[in-house]
Design a protein around this nucleic acid. Structure first.
Length: 573
RNA sequence: CGGGGAGUGGCGCAGUCUGGUAGCGCACCCGGCUGGGGGCCGGGCGGUCGCAGGUUCAAAUCCUGUCUCCCCGACCA
């Protein structure tokens, strides 16, 4: 019997002063987690119950698609990571250490190396494939900036899974199975979520999806439209239309003293930012001789990930001196007459096509001067790229775009042979030819699901858990004195509900009514049964659904309570 | 790594400018009352003021150094 009087549940009236995110505040106040250091969190009993309920759901869905559970070390030989090139490729995020014999070791931030290492040892034949493995294991990442409680930590449990196939068709099939499993995991958890196309990043490989839970503390922005969802890092949409002034036969110089920003120009010329060209000079591969000028609409901005992908190489913003030497004075640069390649954003091209004869305002590459009536193609040559950030006002297939912050609660990648090749995970096909195993990788952070649920489902009084992952499903609150008839009745109710299969918490402390009910609302069990003398006199208990604080009219009868609760439970979100 | 902020009982804070017996609310312990929304009365426990060094008759307070934590940005397999 879980009695609150015996449960380590250190609730706080006030949130820690340094907590900003709602989930951070509430999870600490409700006694679910405690901090040990930056990005280092301990789970207390109630919090761990919620975490493990998420784990249980994930495990069920992994087993449903035939994935096999394993457990592999966090402490690993650095050599394994050298073989895949990641020991050197990854910066300070990888914890590196030495053992007593001075061998280089790492603390794993993910387990591609470990999983592939074992598969390489074991798999010999195409007959051994396909299969997939998963585990719940600690990941260690020296995050540059841990934040928002358990939302971004340096050590956390991840469910990571890896699929192994003989070819890409096999990978596609397993990938689709995982997509189905992930959808069930998030839906069963009770989250609001969506799947978005994402950048493959440094994991390599072909296709990738992220699973996002919208919430205020989210670190990513997601572009949404009817039938469309994508991470802002890859999102593409049609830009809001603009009307360009008619251009003359050639650009005209305009005096724009001191107007070094689009905002200043828009104000001083009383002209829409979307009719101007913004120029963003970048240095590719840190090679100062490889300067490019990215040009986009004045009301748009660059997404680094998209630009890096378009360039096919890393880049950095050019320095003031580099710009002055090759292009012009910062604040007045533009694409006309420059001797560096111009990358023109697709939205500029599209807007130009929609405005035949229209011209843009652009920097003149001379101090305090701009050019009006600039026509791409006529006045400068360019290569078209899509590097801008989607903004509110854009459309996808005619549907308006909204942008919402969200937290990433999972991702799936098609790795192909990124790890099997360097680690020698090969098999012989029917023709006796050696082939590399084709892999996928699939991750979920249970802690983020818990925190995202708190972000999404709370009110001014506390947490309002989805019933699938609540630490306790039902809290039975005994009012009155600790030795009163209310507690006696509550104990019987507890036993009856537990026998009926519910996770029940008994509030049996010697506090006042307000204290008991306030803490119950903070902890947020989806259903609360309140046992008081008024109800007992009528043979009833009061019932309240936490989400929406909905009181059940007249309460529930003590006689046949389990059945009544079962029926009510169907209505609980 | 750049910018900003903060370290004083378990939590939230005042005190620092202007050096002079470490305080407040909550929580906690004991006794009593109360028992349907953080109730009341009385009595208590608990802090080398992040750490180190310096100045001074005297340092939470001034000086130097250092550690830690938070927020924004960069980063994010």
């Amino acid at each position: 019997m879980t009695r609150l009087s015996r449960l380590l549940l250190p609730t706080e009236r006030q949130p820690p002063a340094d907590a900003e995110a709602v989930s951070h505040q509430l999870m600490v106040r409700a006694g679910l987690v405690r901090q040990m250091g930056a990005g280092l969190w301990s789970w207390l009993p109630a919090g761990w119950r919620a975490h493990q309920k998420v784990v249980a759901i994930i495990r069920e869905e992994m087993e449903r698609i035939g994935a096999q559970e394993t457990l592999m070390p966090v402490l690993q030989p650095a050599d394994l990571w050298r073989r895949t090139g990641r020991y050197d490729a990854i910066g300070g995020e990888l914890f590196r250490l030495n053992d007593r014999r001075d061998a280089d070791m790492v603390l794993a931030m993910t387990h591609e190396e470990a999983m592939t290492f074992h598969v390489a040892q074991v798999v010999r034949s195409y007959r051994d494939l396909p299969f997939s493995l998963f585990q719940f294991q600690i990941k260690e990442r020296d995050e540059p900036r841990p934040r928002a409680g358990v939302l971004r930590t340096r050590e956390f449990v991840m469910k990571d899974a890896y699929s192994f196939d003989r070819d890409e068709a096999g990978l596609q099939a397993q990938y689709e199975q995982y997509r189905g499993a992930y959808a069930r995991v998030y839906s069963r958890s009770g989250l609001r979520w969506y799947e978005v196309e994402s950048d493959t990043g440094m994991m390599g490989g072909k296709r990738a999806h992220e699973y996002m839970a919208p919430c205020a503390a989210g670190e990513d922005d997601v572009a949404l439209a009817e039938g469309y969802a994508a991470n802002i890092e890859v999102a593409a949409a049609d830009a809001a239309p603009v009307t360009l002034p008619t251009a003359g036969d050639a650009p005209v110089t305009v005096d724009t003293p001191g107007a070094t920003s689009i905002e200043q120009l828009a104000t001083s010329l009383d002209r829409a930012a979307g009719t101007m060209l913004k120029a963003y000079p970048v240095v590719v591969n840190d090679d100062p001789s490889d300067l490019r000028l990215v040009v986009l609409r004045g009301d748009h901005s660059v997404v680094d990930v998209k630009l890096s992908k378009a360039l096919g190489a890393p880049f950095r913003p050019a320095g003031v001196e580099e710009i002055a030497a090759r292009i012009g004075p910062v604040g007045f640069i533009g694409p006309v007459g420059v001797d560096v390649p111009v990358l023109l954003d697709a939205a500029v091209v599209a807007s130009g096509e929609a405005n035949p004869g229209g011209g843009w305002l652009a920097g003149a590459n001379a101090a305090d001067r701009h050019l009006d009536g600039v026509v791409p193609g006529r006045d400068f040559t360019y290569e078209t790229v899509d590097v801008r950030a989607v903004v509110v006002g854009d459309t996808v297939d005619g549907h308006p775009v909204t942008i919402e912050p969200a937290i990433e609660v999972g991702n799936i990648f098609q790795l192909m042979t990124r790890y099997s090749e360097p680690l020698g995970a090969t098999f012989l096909d029917e023709d006796g030819q050696e082939q590399s195993v084709v892999m996928g990788s699939y991750g979920i952070g249970p802690a983020r699901i818990v925190a995202a649920a708190v972000e999404q489902f709370h009110d001014e009084r506390g947490i309002a858990w989805p019933k699938a992952i609540a630490p306790f499903e039902i809290e039975v609150v005994a009012l009155g004195k600790p030795d009163g008839p209310e507690l006696e009745a509550a104990v019987r109710i507890y036993a009856e509900l537990q026998a009926a299969g519910f996770d029940v918490l008994l509030e049996d402390r010697a506090g006042g009514t307000g204290q008991k009910l306030t803490d119950a609302e903070l902890l947020g069990a989806p259903l609360r049964l309140t046992v008081g003398k008024r109800g007992l006199a009528d043979g009833r208990v009061e019932a309240q659904i936490r989400r929406g604080s909905e009181d059940v009219e007249g309460g529930l009868p003590l006689d046949g309570l389990a059945d009544a609760v079962r029926e009510l439970w169907e209505r609980v979100p």
